[in-house]
């Protein structure tokens, strides 16, 4: 982009200055490349180059401690899609992602609307809903493992009202239709992990929605009230449509978090009995670094990458276009 010269300063007397400036600009132009070059090279190698290398490993025979990079074709991928554990992972990821996003959206929008009612102590409430985001997923996992322990925790209350849940130790899959090697349906144990994850991440959607609500000018609400609209109508007809684009952002950010989730589940439940809480992130880690099945692990990681890219690439391209 050519530097924009302010019109008032572009008078004839400054021709010499302008020539000097142009030369200077050229030098600076090259310097600006030099500034970002290290980062560009680093990302090119460590992100794109390494992804390509992982892709290559996923097509190789390297399934032992000794690297064997001979070409194996799609063998590892075919193995995974026939593998009980990986099939369970796909099922768990599907339902985890679905429930996690719904919980974060619902709770986030509700809390943001509550907080937007000019209430007293707003910043205190806001901080209570936000602080879990400053915690590590490992800490969250450790705490909720204790809270949702089938023998203790919230079950002490639930038992009093006649409910009793095994939480993350349950192996029940509802409805459990036989599909390939696994029972397809919602694994009850996943619900426990969803609660912990939503507890931690709701603050993100509250912050996003609240920022969106605050950006709506008060005049719009006033005008609607003048026209006789009730508060519920104002939200339903005017405000919710205006914050809809935020929902898209929240869904994409949450989807990419949930598709690559590892630490929360590793710390809280692990793979679980019958792999009811296993996810690709955990499988990849265990099979690669505990089992030395490097090619299988690489194949899992490439599938994870592709699943994230489906959401992220269109998002990045559209926000790129929206800017220019």
């Amino acid at each position: 982009m050519e530097p924009k010269v302010l019109p008032s300063l572009q008078s004839g007397s400054s021709l010499a200055v302008s020539a000097k400036k142009r030369r200077k600009w050229n030098v600076d132009h090259w310097l600006s490349f030099a500034f970002i070059l290290p980062s560009v090279i680093a990302v090119a190698v460590f992100v794109y180059g390494f992804i390509a290398w992982s892709g290559y490993v996923s097509l190789s025979n390297w399934n032992s401690l000794v690297p064997d990079l001979s070409f194996a074709g799609l063998k590892n991928y075919l193995f995974l899609f026939k593998d009980f554990r990986f099939q369970a992972d796909l099922r768990n990821t599907l339902f985890f992602t679905l429930f996690f996003i719904l919980a974060v959206l619902f709770m986030g929008l509700m809390l943001a609307v509550f907080l937007d009612q000019k209430i007293r102590g707003e910043s205190l409430f806001r901080n209570i809903f936000f602080f879990p985001m400053a915690l590590s997923f490992v800490v969250t996992g450790v705490i909720w493992q204790w809270l949702l322990n089938p023998a203790t925790g919230v079950n002490l209350f639930l038992k009093k009202i006649g409910l009793d849940s095994l939480w993350y130790t349950s192996v029940t899959v509802i409805p459990g239709i036989q599909w390939s090697k696994i029972q397809f349906g919602v694994p009850v144990a996943v619900i426990a992990v969803v609660i912990a994850a939503a507890w931690q991440m709701t603050g993100f959607s509250v912050a996003m929605y609240l920022a969106g609500l605050r950006a709506i000018p008060e005049e719009i609400r006033e005008a609607a009230r003048m026209d006789g609209a009730g508060e519920f109508q104002i939200y339903r007809k005017i405000i919710f449509p205006m914050v809809a684009p935020i929902t898209v952002s929240v869904v994409i950010i949450m989807a990419h978090i949930s598709l690559k989730i590892f630490d929360l589940i590793y710390a809280m439940t692990g793979p679980g009995a019958n792999f009811v809480t296993d996810v690709p992130g955990v499988y990849m880690f265990e099979t690669t670094f505990r089992g030395n099945y490097y090619a299988n692990g690489a194949a899992i990681s490439i599938i994870m990458l592709l699943s994230v890219a489906i959401f992220i690439v269109p998002y990045l391209i559209s926000s790129r276009k929206g800017e220019s």
Binding site: V47, L259, G281, S301, I302, L305, I312, L316
Partner: peptide
Amino acid sequence: IFTALLFGMFIPYQSILIPL
């Protein structure tokens, strides 16, 4: 270039872990 850099913050790090 900026958009290409941004992609790096969304990738599952598992996908670069073995080469790394």
